[in-house]
Amino acid sequence: MKHHLVSAADLTRDDAVLILDTAEELSRVAGRPIKKLPTLRGRTVVNLFFEDSTRTRISFEAAAKRLSADVINFSAKGSSVSKGESLKDTALTLQAMGADAVVIRHHDSGAPHRLATSGWIGGHVVNAGDGTHEHPTQALLDAFALRRRLADGALGADLAGRRVTIVGDILHSRVARSNVRLLTTLGAEVTVVAPPTLVPVGVESWPCAVSYDLDAVLPDSDAVMMLRVQRERMNAAYFPTEREYARRYGLDGERMARMPEHAVVMHPGPMNRGMEITAEVADSPRCTVVEQVSAGVDVRMAVLYLLLGGAGPGDEEPKGATPRGAEATRGNRA
């Protein structure tokens, strides 16, 4: 694996499978009474959040804490950032505090890339969502949840031949960009579905199919991922009304019935019930929303473990404290 995780494009198929396998091993810890490993003891992980986020931040926080890392939450609101401090000075501050990894969420596309390549910090950079660019750990957790549902979470397995349909605001979605890259890397066939206004100009270079017709794609989907559609997009004339959007691109029970029986419904959350997804679908057993949340902690543990655990204090941990599988996957990295 590379030194940073900024884009899903940073991951080869083997990197991605290794992360999923490691997450699978680490998830067993979550089933224990004491959900904690000493792997990252003495390491410092900073959650640097320039944009409001509850789910992703607490997911990373839980992941780092379960690996015994020291966690510092740095939220842009109420910090020196709101007083005009630059990303550079913030980064230099974190570097001086000895951050081993910086998990960054930023409203500007490319800010994590900039942090990783500018020389401002020496630690690992993990992109927790940047603007409308990427959100690679979301794609990893989606792949993890998908592999569990469609391939029983088999170690070493990828998603070859699985057909995944991503529906919604593709233009503004970092989840879509990361998923198109990662799922394709894992062998899946991806189709994005949206009104033409919400598909980026230049999408033809993406490794996926594009459709404007949800009903035509549903019967051939092993998974349908519904993206959150912000209501304010309506004001910028991306679509006429919420009702029309829901009618043409929302997933309701009737549409879900046209999916193959084994097919699942995914959503990165938070859901707009009644907009892109109806309550009937959201609450059905085919919907993986809650599994995705728990997968998020497992996958982020795996990412932090693989980025930070390979050398240093992680190697000195007492025998037996690491799950056997994780030990084995660490050996596989050589």
Binding site: G110, T132, H133, E134, R177, P200, V201, G202, S205, W206
Partner: peptide, 16 residues
Amino acid sequence: AQMNEGVVSAELGLTG
């Protein structure tokens, strides 16, 4: 707008 709208902006997620 942040950069030329096209293949690269679509990938980088920068407003075209």
